[in-house]
């Protein structure tokens, strides 16, 4: 299995150069496709950033998402700033954020009047009912990808189950994330990792990137 996925990664990787313009362009596309709810950012990042460009790994996205949930502000923006910063420091963060926000900004300025008129047409509603279903599928796919990278043993399985149930019970995401971090620290103090196995270097994409640098 791992060899298949790494081959796939290699196939996808056109190795677009990490410069401000490319980051802006990529996030502009993501921002344009970001319809109905900020969490759609994750499937889009998985597709554009992880699969196509290899600019971040799935488990990094997972980490950024959890962190973004526990920080104030708009989640899609937070995750984008994390990805951008990791690519090219502050310049990357600004480029990613500008790319993400620009389509939203232009859409409201230019077409919100027209949209206000068409948003209640039955046809428009039908189209967006359909898109809603597509979004559900995208989010499920992303959960599947993230599961593979984050749920690696019994402890992480428990954390996953706890976060899922607590979120469904409407517990604040801030509290969920903080309590998970706390449990992780307590767990690791009692059961330190057996080998020098480090989660960060277990991913083939990461190794490639290090080899490149």
């Amino acid at each position: 299995m791992p060899s298949v996925s790494s081959q796939k990664t290699l196939l996808y990787n056109v190795r677009m150069e990490k410069n401000c313009f490319n980051i802006f362009k990529t996030f502009f596309k993501i921002g344009t496709l970001l319809l109905g709810g900020g969490y759609v950012i994750l499937p889009l990042l998985q597709s554009e950033i992880a699969d196509k460009k290899g600019w971040a790994t799935t488990d990094e996205l997972c980490e950024y998402y959890a962190l973004s949930q526990s920080l104030p502000g708009v989640i899609a923006a937070n995750v984008s700033i994390f990805v951008g910063y990791n690519l090219l420091k502050s310049r990357g963060a600004v480029s990613a954020l500008a790319g993400l926000i620009m389509p939203a900004f232009l859409a409201i300025i230019l077409i919100s009047n027209i949209l206000a008129k068409i948003v209640n047409y039955p046809t428009t509603q039908n189209i967006f009912a359909g898109v809603g279903v597509g979004v559900v599928v995208l989010v499920i796919l992303t959960v599947k990808e993230m599961w593979g990278k984050s749920v690696v043993d019994k402890f992480t399985l428990c954390i996953f189950a706890y976060a899922l149930i607590a979120a469904l019970a409407h517990l604040s995401p801030v509290l969920i994330v903080l309590s998970c971090v706390f449990m992780g620290i307590i767990y690791r103090m009692n059961f330190p990792p057996k080998t020098s196995h480090n989660l960060d270097t277990s991913c083939p994409q990461d190794n490639e990137r290090k080899g490149e640098a």
């Binding site: 979004v135 989010v139 996953f160 994330v177 998970c180 971090v181």
Partner: peptide, 26 residues
């Protein structure tokens, strides 16, 4: 590192909860 080790499945769980919610809604 311990925090990050736990925060990843937490992120995954939170997103799974979103999947359940939007499934019910949409």
């Amino acid at each position: 590192q311990a925090g990050i080790y736990a925060i990843k499945p937490a992120g995954c769980g939170l997103l799974a909860a979103v999947a359940v919610k939007i499934f019910v809604d949409n």
